[in-house]
Structure formats: C-alpha cells, structure tokens
C-alpha cells in the first residue's frame, strides 16, 4: 500500500505549485533470531515515512520534508521478545502549515526482554503549523525503553504555530506515563515553558535508575511512580543546548541508587528555582 495523495488546492509547500495531503503508514519489526541477533523482519516505507536499515538500527530518512497540514502519518514499531532496536532519523522534521491539522501517530510494542531506543532528531514547529502527534507504547513487564522527543519552537526568530504532542506508555496494563505538551496559544509561559526555544524529554524504562529527583538549570530528572521509569525533562534556548541537557539528565538518571549526588546543587531556594527557570533563557556550560 503506498501513500495516498490527493491534490488539495492551489496552495503549495513553501509557495510551490503542488499541494498534497498524504496518508502514509510505515512499519518496522525487529525479532531476535536463533543466534541471539536482532533482525529486521519487516521494514515498510510509505510516502514521507521512509525507513532505511543502518548499522545502528533503523533510520527515518524523510523522503519528503516533515508533515504538512492535512497529512496523516502512522508508524508502527514492533520489537519481539529479546530483540533490540534503535530508531533514529536523518534530520529534523519540519512541521509546516497546510490544509488542516497534520497528524503523526507512532505505535510501539516492545516484547519481553526486548529493548527499544527511539531517538529521532527534533521536530521543528514552524509558524502557522497545526500539528498533533501521538505515541502509544506498550511495554512487556521486563522490556526496556529509551524514548526521546525534542521540539523546537519555531524556526529562527519565528513564533511556532500550534502543536500538541502526547506520549502514552504502559507496562502491561499499568499506565507508566501519560504526558502531553501543548504549544501555541501564547499564554501561560511563566508556568509552562518560559522563554524556551526548545523543549524535550527522554523517558527511560529499565531497572536500576535513580530514584531521587534531580534538578538543575533547565533540567529535571523525575523518577516516576513506577520504580523502573524516569522522565528527564528539559527546556533550553535552542536545540543544541536542549540535547546537551537531556544527555546530562540521562547520565544523572543512570547513576545507580546510593551513589553520591554531584556537587554544586543549588542549596537555597533562591538559587535553585532561579536556576531552574533561568535554564530556559541562558546557555550554561554543561555538555
């Protein structure tokens, strides 16, 4: 089944002549073979969702630029028992305005003893976009997960359009995390994103992660109610610093329980809160 395209009027991408709405459904499945190696048993590209198998895992190579308004894209990911799969992307996905709301849905099933590492490049919400993304992840009891989402709020100097992203993760039948980010009505910055130019999170699910929360400039490491889950959440002025903060958060989360926390945690509230908030505005030196 190929992507279904439909002409939808005269307005085109980037001012071009052709507009299309696109419904695409891509899929990847990984299984562990008799020798204990993971093999891609299914790899289906569709329309703008083009998948390539690489040494690292699977890459979304983006046969077209990111979603346009009106696009409905779906990606199914299945990781069989004991298999390991990494999903990456070649470049940031630019979400542009178009004919209506663009939608991207990712569904992932991670089987017993399996690991999924899903860390594509950021989604850039362009001015005027109207985008919804949803990720639904079903984990077996002892599956492990690394799931990164990064959003850049507008191209250089531009205010983003509307964007709503939701992440739903369950272990068995127990909800682990339901996490939505809504951007675009221009209000409430002081409670939600400050002056951040980029925001993102990494969800880690595996045993032995930190059980103490940690907070520093623009970064929080948040142990979830489930003992195997940690959400790393960060805001930053730009995508590069956001990535560094998330990476730092992952290192903090990975420190085994009982190890000493790093020096230099702000001791009083003035410093701690100011640092947390300032994080959205000023670069720091963490790498």
């Amino acid at each position: 089944m190929g992507a279904r395209r439909a002409a939808a009027g005269a307005r085109g991408r980037g001012g071009g002549a052709v507009t299309r709405r696109c419904a695409a459904r891509a899929a990847v499945a990984a299984e562990r073979d008799a020798h204990g190696r993971t093999r891609c048993t299914r790899l289906r590209s569709d329309g703008p969702l083009a998948l390539r198998e690489t040494a690292e895992g699977v890459h979304l190579v983006g046969a077209a630029a990111g979603p346009l308004g009106g696009d409905v894209l779906e990606l199914d990911v299945a990781v069989g028992p004991g298999a390991r799969l990494a999903v990456r992307s070649a470049a940031a996905a630019l979400v542009l305005p178009g004919d209506g709301t663009s939608r991207l849905t990712v569904r992932a099933r991670v089987g017993p003893g399996a690991r999924l590492d899903f860390a594509p490049e950021p989604t850039v919400a362009a001015a005027g976009c109207d985008h919804r993304s949803a990720a639904e992840i079903a984990l077996a009891e002892d599956a492990t997960l690394r799931w990164r989402e990064e959003i850049v709020l507008g191209r250089h100097g531009e205010r983003p359009g509307r964007l709503r992203g939701r992440l739903d993760v369950a272990i068995g039948r127990t909800p682990l995390l339901r996490h939505e980010l809504r951007v675009g009505d221009g209000h409430g910055a002081r409670a939600v994103l400050g002056d951040a130019g980029a925001a993102g999170s990494v969800l880690l699910v595996r045993p032995g992660l930190a059980r103490e929360a940690h907070v520093e400039d623009g970064l929080a490491v948040l142990p979830l109610a489930h003992p195997s889950g940690v959400l790393i959440t960060a805001v930053a002025p730009d995508a590069a610093l956001l990535r560094r903060r998330l990476a730092r958060g992952e290192r903090v989360a990975a420190r085994a329980r009982g190890e000493t926390a790093p020096r230099g945690l702000p001791a009083d509230q003035e410093t701690a809160s100011a640092a947390a908030f300032r994080g959205a505005e000023t670069p720091d030196s963490c790498s």
Partner: peptide
C-alpha cells in the same frame, strides 16, 4: 480513563523539584 487529558508544564515540574530542595519554604 486512558484518554483523559495529560497536559504537562515542564517549568512547574522543575520548580516543584527545586522547591523541595530549597532551604527557605
């Protein structure tokens, strides 16, 4: 219940954690 809204506020999360570590509360 699965589909109930879940909008997050990253700054409120950061501030909440900074608060419990603050000396003055």
């Amino acid at each position: 219940w699965d589909a109930l809204p879940a909008p997050s506020a990253p700054l409120l999360d950061l501030l909440a954690e900074a608060h419990v570590r603050a000396g003055l509360r």
